[in-house]
Design a protein around this nucleic acid. Sequence first.
DNA 1: ATATCAACTT
Length: 747
Amino acid sequence: MKTPISASKRYVHRLLKPHKYFTTTHLRRLSVAPDSTQPPSQEELTETAITQLKITEDWTSNTNLHYQLLSLPPQSLIKIARHLETSNKALKFFHFIHDNQSPSLSQLPLPSIFQTVIELAMREEDSVPLVDLFNLSKELKVPLTSNSAILLIRYFFHVKKVQESLELYNELEPHAKNTNVKNTLLGLLLKSNRFEDAHKLLDEMLQSDTKFPPNETTLSVVFSVLLRWNCGKEDEKILGLIPKFGIHGVFPCNVWLTQLITRLCRSHRNDKAWDLLHELIKFGKLEAGPCNALLSGLSRERNYKRINLVLNEMKENNIKPDIVTFGMLVNHLCKAHRVDDALDMLKKMKEGSDGISIKPDVILYNTVIDGLCKVGRQAEGFLLMEQMKSEHNCAPNVVTYNCLIDGFCKSGEIERAHELFDQMDKENVAPNVITMNTLVDGMCKNGRISNAMEFFRKMQEEKGIKGNAVTYSTLISAFCNVNNMDRAMRLFDEMESLGSPDALAYYSLISGLTLAGRPDDAAFIASKMKKSGFLPDLLTYNTLIGGFCRKKKLDKAVEILKDMEDSKIKPDSVTYNTLISYFTQNGDFGTAHKFLKQMVKDGNAPTVVTYGTLIHGHCLAGNLDEGLNLFEEMIRTSKVVPNNVIYNILIDSLCKCGKVDHALSLMDGMLEKGVAPNTTTYNAMLKGISSRNRLKDAERLMNQMTTQACNPDYITIEILNDWFSAIGEADRLKQFVQGFQASSSAA
DNA sequence: ATATCAACTT
């Protein structure tokens, strides 16, 4: 190889000639020492050399300098190299030192000077190719420093020569393979998805007897990849190595762990998250965050067994649950309609009777208030809001009010809902679009669509709250419900004119037309939707299929199903339930079971609705026993939790067959399982016992309805009225209705 | 990352 220094050797005869640039002025200026009798110090010599090397083209011919340089210690030589501006100059210097090194001089500075060459070369646009430099180091047997290795490894990755990087790493001297080098290589391997190689390297780093153990950076490199957005399952082997960091005293921070576990749970890898947490819990550094993330994942798959295990382990390992932990637990209880347990937990938190006292915040209160509203105990919810204000100095926010307003709307107490809305104004809690939507929906569902429209317009004018897709969808559905397609269409147009038309607007029209028993028109809107560039989603398809099934137009339903499959949208359990329902209601259990098989094959486990559909079908076909058997089977062999609809179907059927005692025992079982009976349950039951004239049972049930705040509806009143007036007990009904009004207005 | 509105199936 032709190198600058070998070229310069040919001009050795010039060495003694003073260089043309070297004037006496220069020399005078360059001699730093003020007292010329003192020999210059090493520092001065270094500075002088730097200046000379910078400004002189052919300094190798300067013998003076030559000897001075060779007398300098390694550190000074390295310093000189660092101050040279271009890689060419540095390379020339490198060659000079290399060619002139005395055998006694240690090799020490050469690798460092070479490193400087690489550093300079990397910054330049057209430098000596880095590959050539790498080859030169091999040729001259100058070992690479750790930093040189890092630079070259990065460069090789940059030009997609991963194999060269690995070779370079393998050829390094053992002492150069330090943690930094390993971290660099590891990061790049992971980034380019070479999980096999990365795993091997990381595993090697994590050995307990390694000279260069992993550090925080190693961990952050690993996490930056694990937390990457679209990381497949290849990273799972790497995941398994994380606990090994603990052996070296490196522990991931709780924030990262929380993110990682959240990510694992979201990509349906709860098991991996579970394993990871359990490996790490031993090191005693876990906080509530990662545990919460796992708990949240486990609750999504309703794995209550594991939820309880995690909670116990938190206790054993002294990991203090925080407000989020409690928030999730309370939320669970509420969603399982175990509101009394939720209230209990809230109380315990405040008292600190379980060893941990946490001041509940507005979110926790909102969760419980919503829980109360969702089971029809909105009056208690309201009291809880008063309590949180007065006793705990916790101000309700817009969510608190939204929950309560929804609660009162759903129970038909629109006036109370409006009062709460006015109260918000007094307490300076600004309503938002959800508040509006809730009230609009409440009014629509209570047959006051024009009031709802008025309110909607007023909110827009007075509060500047604009309607969103939900608002329009609610109103459009409401107009469709009363068969006012004209107004529905006008709202649809208004929404489209407001800007980006929303798929939800199409959907609400489609669902409205379907609800109005006009599936063909709905299908037409769906085709229009497609033409405007919106693809109907699963919900839309399900709605259409349901619409045609209800009209007994199976061929059309199947047509939609085909269209759906063409659009690559997979039918889900709702789709299958709809079809199964069509066949069972028409007595065709053979085809129903065919679809049931297909459903399971598609990966959709039968849901509570599937069982409900089949049970309902059996009852309709007069096979009550078959229905009861299936119910037993469901409880025995599946994880499906019965809901009140299933109980209602069976209780109704039993009562109609005169098996009132069986129905009553089923209702007891319902209460035992924590399934709340609703008005439908009571209506079926009361109808049944009325035919047997069992007044005592009626009394008990009526009391139950009152205490559970389960509103009687016109059917309840009709049943009781027919019965009681026939036996001259009309007062009982009066009392019942009055008692009800008293309890609901007590709040 | 624990709370509020609409929408498909018994």
